[in-house]
Design a protein around this nucleic acid. Structure first.
Length: 234
DNA sequence: GCGACAG
DNA sequence: ATCTTGTCGC
């Protein structure tokens, strides 16, 4: 799919923060932004503790059957450090190279991280939504900012994630009974209600939604295979 | 200054 | 996130 180049990626953390503030103004998650995706993609990255290449992967699913339609992977180096709030500057460059190969483009993308539930309103999902000009949703396994009450015990129960001024940033969603909730927030071109609806719809069995869960499995599998090959060739 | 802190 | 074995609970 087509990648928009809105800025360079080799920036300092200070420049990154400035870029986020600027880009956040272009995010659209207005109530009423509903979608009916036919293809839903999930993406993730896998890195090894020791130094070595990173692996990005995207899995495209049929929105109705949840069958895997396509898989894409991309190997590359990551230099930007992990800094809470600046995750996209670490993961987005490689993820975008993987998305570049995708054809046809998906109608919705789910990411492992936050959407607008971010200090400057531009988490990984929102940032990628702008570069890909595609609806995105953030499905984080833990909270970055905001407060929330414990959602109900039943699958599908959710509690609003609220910011300092009382704004609703996202939701803590119970995708499976007996498990901790995940944090869903709109990324771009979709509203929170619709984001919640689709995340729940692609989470038939596990805590992690199928798109990102399968993408996670894919990149870990590919990393181990590639590391094995590289080890035997040396 | 202190605590919090996606992956 | 990654590493890593067994173990506790629904």
């Amino acid at each position: 799919m087509k990648i928009h180049s809105l800025h360079r990626w080799d920036v300092t953390p200070k420049e990154a923060i400035s870029i986020q503030k600027d880009l956040a103004r272009h995010i659209n998650t207005s109530v009423g932004l509903k979608i009916s995706p036919k293809l839903i993609a999930g993406a993730d990255i896998s890195l090894s503790q020791s130094r070595g290449p990173a692996y990005a992967g995207v899995v495209v699913l049929d929105a109705n059957t949840l069958e895997v339609v396509a898989e894409y992977t991309q190997r590359g180096e990551i230099d930007f450090p992990y800094v809470p709030g600046l995750l996209s500057f670490r993961e987005a460059p490689l993820l975008l190279k993987a998305f570049e190969q995708i054809d046809p483009p998906p109608d919705l993308i789910m990411l492992d991280g936050q959407g607008i539930a971010h200090p400057r309103g531009l988490g990984l999902a929102s940032h990628l939504g702008l570069f890909l000009d595609c609806p995105t949703v953030g499905c984080a396994k833990s909270r970055l900012i905001g407060d929330h009450r414990e959602p109900g015990t039943k699958k599908g129960s959710h509690a609003p994630l609220k910011g300092k001024n009382g704004e609703t940033l996202g939701s803590a969603l119970r995708t499976r009974e007996g498990c901790k909730p995940i944090f869903v927030s709109a990324g771009h071109k979709i509203d929170l209600a619709s984001a919640l609806e689709w995340v729940l719809r692609v989470s038939p069995r596990y805590r992690i939604p199928e798109p990102t869960r399968l993408a996670h499995n894919l990149v870990n599998r590919v990393r181990k295979e590639d590391q094995g090959l590289r080890a035997t060739s040396r």
